[in-house]
Design a protein around this nucleic acid. Structure first.
Lengths: 202, 202
DNA sequence: GTCTATACGGCGATAGAC
DNA sequence: GTCTATCGCCGTATAGAC
């Protein structure tokens, strides 16, 4: 019991690092065990399977990062300011956690089986308050009438997809990783502008 | 020799279906052989390795779907009409191959080694003519000055990402697959509008 | 060309000794 | 809790019958 927490943590940390570095599929459990300085069987003692270990890491990562986003979405902020903050914080979060992008992408493709993770992601988007706000502002005539689902999908697409096609953008524009990150930073101003534009009367 | 084309095609088709459905990593060559109704040794006779088979499938998949998109992008169409057509055709294409997005995203994400596939995707986005058109129109004062890379990333994001989060959208809004496809169809008008809006003077 | 049979090393997972 | 030893599956390869 004395060493148990310690060992579990060592496995957790080694796995997190390796998953980030080479992707989940190309990281073997033997490799994790070696890096953690323990034995292969211990992997399975603490986490029943590699899949389970992945779940644990993912859940912790989402929880750690989602709270601020949910808070912003359900805050009493004025609509435009809320959009600006949400985009800003979300892009910052994805910039600092490339692992999150990998994980979400790995899960999305086989979302039929990965119910646990799907629910974790789904809970990230409790949009009821935000939806209401969009409808209310439209009723008041402050913005155009808009479909909240479409608007939220637009927002997520403009925020997240560029990270997914990072390699393509780098290759196409012949830029380095650092330059790509600058490109991403520019989007913190561009994306909210575009979204707010789409709500304006014409 | 008589049956060879046939057998090769059967392997090719079975593998294509399985790769799209479950991803490359979670498809075994024994499974492909079974589905194709042939023997494991034949897999190795026609395609030296699974990786080789994947390359062949991916290249064909991209070629088959990209020609019309490239044609539109490099056509002499007026800018707004070009955007409308590009979005329309792209969304139609992805609607007919809903698994293509997550498949390509998965490939893109570990493309450090997968040079062949990266180049294939990269060629899909020969945007030189389109970039020039954006700059020219801005010079003429017809549209705002805009960063062509950002604009193209915006466009791809709004087109493709909704397919990647299909399960999330269905779950969140409690809708069926058919209703999701209707949602996607609505985007054929919404997305070009948004993009063109972002080019307008304010 | 197509098959059966077999082999290799690596993988995720696990049984059982301590 | 921690270990060794082992299981069955994987991708890949090859030898040899038809």
């Amino acid at each position: 019991m004395a060493k148990s927490r310690n060992t579990e943590q060592k496995i957790f940390d080694a796995a997190t690092e390796l998953f980030l570095e080479k992707g989940v599929d190309r990281t073997s459990v033997r490799e994790i065990a070696t890096k953690a300085g323990i034995n292969l069987a211990l992997m399975n003692y603490y986490f029943r399977s590699k899949e389970n270990l992945f779940d644990a890491i993912f859940t912790q990562l989402v929880k750690k990062n989602s709270e601020e986003l949910i808070r912003i979405l359900n805050s009493e902020l004025e609509l435009e300011e809320k959009i600006r903050q949400y985009v800003y914080v979300y892009i910052d979060m994805l910039s600092e956690n490339p692992l999150l992008v990998s994980f979400v992408m790995a899960i999305l493709h086989r979302s039929r089986e990965r119910i646990t993770e799907m629910k974790a992601i789904s809970n990230l988007y409790a949009t009821d308050q935000f939806t209401k706000q969009l409808i209310d502002e439209a009723k008041k005539g402050n913005i155009r009438r808009t479909d909240p689902t479409h608007f939220f999908v637009d927002m997520l697409s403009l925020i997240a997809f560029p990270f997914a096609i990072k390699m393509l953008v780098m290759d196409k524009n012949n830029i380095t990783e650092e330059e790509f990150m600058l490109f991403i930073q520019e989007r913190k101003a561009r994306v909210p502008e575009m979204l707010i534009d789409s709500l304006r009367h014409r």
